[in-house]
Design a protein around this nucleic acid. Structure first.
Lengths: 106, 106
DNA sequence: TAAGCAATTAACGAATTAGTTAATTATTTA
DNA sequence: TAAATAATTAACTAATTCGTTAATTGCTTA
């Protein structure tokens, strides 16, 4: 099930940090690894888990492998799940209104 | 960190199923356990993890312990995280618009 | 082609998770 | 008070996760 892999992927602080890094720009595996204390192979495993979950995509360009965030999938999965669990949630609607009001900040 | 506990709690299919059960109505620990193949102590541990994460609340009434969903916390945490990672996400805004259009279904 | 850098895969060990059954605590009621 | 039911905690085991270092693969360039 896709949800299983997404939530498993998100259940790790370093993996969530990787997503945050990638939200600003695409980065190579090495650039990502450079931001963590752990070894490059460990980061590579985290990237693989994120990619299997569909949260990031990778593309090799020459010697480097670039990673970028699949923000559509992340957002759709999380809001879809929240809505499934709480279809009548007032908080979600409040949040939605806030989001609507922040029209063009990107 | 609160996020850690929330995402760890959500990284388990039985725990997500418990949340779905509780989205419809509050239930006793025994009623919840009755819907799973696993033992009551195992379900009790899952409930404890969900409660520590702030996703459910419990209240003892006589012999029984009733559990209910903290939908505010679930929804706010997930949408807050999604927005933090993807502040410019079009998908979230689309979802928000959909939610706004489903005015009073609860 | 050989050397060098980037990245992943392989092999392994420590720590955590998820389940089990047995024991304990809390409450009700005969 | 004693027995019965609901729920949790304790103690334990099997399986998984997360990190390490070593080896391998892919690409570039001297």
């Amino acid at each position: 099930m896709a949800l299983d892999r997404v939530f498993e992927a998100l259940a790790s602080r370093p993996r969530r940090e990787i997503l945050a890094y990638l939200s600003a720009q695409e980065l190579t595996a090495g650039e990502i690894a450079g931001r963590f204390a752990m070894s490059a192979p460990a980061v590579s495993r985290h990237l693989s888990i994120l990619e299997t979950a569909g949260l990031v995509s990778s593309e090799r360009r020459g010697q480097y492998v670039y990673y970028r965030l699949n923000s559509d999938n992340l957002v759709n999965t999380l809001t879809g799940f929240a809505f499934e669990i709480c279809p009548h949630g007032r908080p979600l609607k409040r949040e939605s209104r806030q989001l609507r009001s922040t029209k063009r900040n990107a």
